[in-house]
Simulated scan of single mutants.
Amino acid sequence: MSTGEKLIQMVIAIALFFAIVAAILLLTQRFRSRRGELVQAAGFVLPATILIALGLLYPAIKTIYLSFRDSYSTKFVGLDNYKTIFTSKAELTVLGNTAMWVIITPIAATLIGLVYAVLVDHARMERLAKALIFLPMAISLVGASIIWKFVYDPRIGLLDAITGKVGLGSDHVWYANPSAHPWNNIWLIVILIWVQTGFAMTVLSAAIKAIPTDIVEAARLDGVGGFKMFRYITVPSIRPTVVVVLTTITITTLKAFDIIQTISAGGAYHTSVLAYEFYFQAFKAFNSGLSAALAVLIFVLVLPIVIYNVRQMRKADAR
């Protein structure tokens, strides 16, 4: 599709939007009462509600329905797909890998980002230091995976060069070792931590700068400094932000797919996680029932985190 065709489509879409708004206004302008205002409001809300129902609600219901069907969606199998997830050796490995990702990634990325934000706060080259740690956020996960694939390469990789220089040998198989199941995942987790640390640092740095100066000055007058300042003043003051960062990175981790697909040849060497397993079952194994059950499980795991996050933000706004 040429640039001119794209421009024409954009103009048509904008014109269509204004035409719909104008039609709603013309149809509802005669209503001047309270009931008329409700009709006018419904005229604007109803199209969006219909689109949300078609784009979100219907697919969610359809996915839940398919999770109770067999691989070809022809027969009702009850909870068999969910039973497979929690009893099959392969699926239990996927669950274990996902748990490892969800535990290590948010904690490590948030902790590194927090410590870094504190160390560079009010430093001479603060902007440059923050830009360097934030730079990986500008790279897609596919791009980051390719970069680290070269880092882990046993022949030309930077990591092997470092281990060789310090006397730890070379030609290591970092993430493709069939006998090193946990470590295969950890080397992949490092990539996501590298990317997400910049996000954590940016948000937490803004929260640190928002701490009232009178609190900090009062603590310093009382002789609080160094690690005690960090533990008793900084961390309690930014606790809601820390929770938001942790939950946001956790949700991102639960959806991890790009790294697995790019660097580990599609979950090889016991590195598959829920998001990739859902893709594999749906589009490679063509098992629609199990893939739908995996999608529902991801939704169930993410939902409490989202609810908790919303409640924390409401509490912060209420203060």
Rank of each mutant, 00 (worst) to 15 (best):
I263K: 05
I189Y: 07
L221I: 11
M313F: 11
V310Q: 10
S205R: 03
Y308A: 07
L192G: 11
Y232P: 07
N185L: 14
V216N: 09
V173K: 15
Y308I: 02
I189W: 04
L221V: 10
R239I: 03
F283G: 09
D258K: 05
S264P: 14
L294V: 15
G289C: 11
G267P: 12
T197M: 05
I233G: 03
P178V: 12
L221Y: 05
L204H: 00
F280I: 06
T202W: 04
T241A: 12
L254G: 01
V242A: 10
V245P: 06
I208H: 02
A206T: 08
V224I: 15
R220S: 02
R231C: 00
P236R: 00
A282T: 04
L246C: 03
T250Y: 12
L303M: 14
D258G: 07
H172Q: 11
R239Y: 06
D214Q: 15
E217S: 14
K255P: 15
M229K: 13
W187F: 15
L290P: 03
D214F: 14
I307L: 15
I307T: 14
I259P: 08
R311W: 14
V224W: 01
F278Q: 06
T247R: 11
G226I: 10
F283L: 15
D258Y: 05
I298R: 11
V244S: 12
N177C: 12
F199L: 09
Q281F: 09
Y276P: 03
K255A: 15
